[in-house]
């Protein structure tokens, strides 16, 4: 029986935007004494509430600055909520910035082991999956090449491939379907579909509404941090498109 995988209740996130001054000790002491006066508040998410069942996939849509990436980072545990709660009852893989974490002066092989370790692989698993990871990223000829010699797209493919081989209950994806060429995108879709058949979940933040329609069962529409709609994908997409016109 499906159980609740994500439970977000009245979630609010505020940032304090600092003035672009260097972080000196003096400026820090001044901030401690007059903190509120030195920063400007920004509410990135306001009173967001939704639940996602295990096996369902969620699309996060909205214009730039709507709060999609902030929500993904809170779900990942990178940011803390200012108010409300955000619970994830399962293991998750955040894929937020492809290419980040690669060290440009290390080889592709070394990067697979370094990045793989950081996202949760054990070394024997990486040894076993190494050829599959490289084959999925289509980098068989570049295994011993330094990562800086790869194109940006190749590095992103490699990062995605490593993440795609990690077995978790939930994958969080931030606008990653823009990666690579059409054939690689098709392979990514293939991975998502396979995960869904296995009863795993995805949360996908994207401007590509076609991709969201194809992959997600339900959608959350955000507008400047406010929750505008949450429900079946077709209904929420229709509302977003009617608002945009």
């Amino acid at each position: 029986m499906a159980h609740t995988l994500i439970d977000v209740s009245h979630l609010t996130k505020d940032f304090r935007l600092e003035r672009a001054t260097p972080s000196s000790l003096f400026s820090r002491i001044r901030k401690v004494l007059w903190l509120r006066g030195q920063t400007r508040p920004l509410r990135a998410l306001s009173d967001v509430t939704f639940q996602l069942e295990q096996g369902q996939s969620l699309g996060l849509i909205g214009d730039n600055g709507a709060g999609k990436s902030t929500l993904l980072r809170i779900l990942s545990g990178i940011y803390r909520p200012t108010a409300g709660s955000c619970n994830v009852y399962g293991r998750l893989t955040p894929v937020l910035e492809l290419g980040v974490g690669m060290h440009h002066d290390l080889s592709v092989r070394e990067n697979v082991f370094l990045y793989g370790a950081m996202i949760g692989f054990r070394r024997p698993e990486l040894v076993r999956l190494f050829d599959q990871i490289i084959a999925f990223a289509e980098l068989e000829e570049f295994v011993e090449v330094k990562a800086k010699e790869l194109s940006t797209g190749m590095r992103q493919r490699l990062t995605f491939s490593i993440n795609a081989h990690l077995e978790t209950d939930l994958i969080l994806l931030d606008e990653i379907l823009a990666v690579g060429d059409r054939s690689f995108r098709e392979k990514c879709y293939g991975v998502f579909k396979e995960r869904q058949r296995e009863g795993k979940s995805l949360v996908l933040a994207s401007h590509d509404l076609g991709a969201v329609e194809e992959v997600c069962d339900c959608c959350l529409l955000l507008e400047r941090g406010q929750q505008r709609a949450f429900g079946p994908t077709a209904e929420v997409l229709a509302e977003y498109e009617s608002n945009s016109q």
Binding site: S76, G77, N87, G90, R91, L106, A117, G120, R123
Partner: peptide, 21 residues
């Protein structure tokens, strides 16, 4: 806030970061 990121192998991460550095 409850969450379980993929289980990390602390020793493996430390070793990989150390050796690469």
């Amino acid at each position: 806030m409850q969450r379980a990121i993929a289980q990390h192998d602390y020793w493996n991460i430390t070793r990989e970061l150390t050796v690469s550095a």
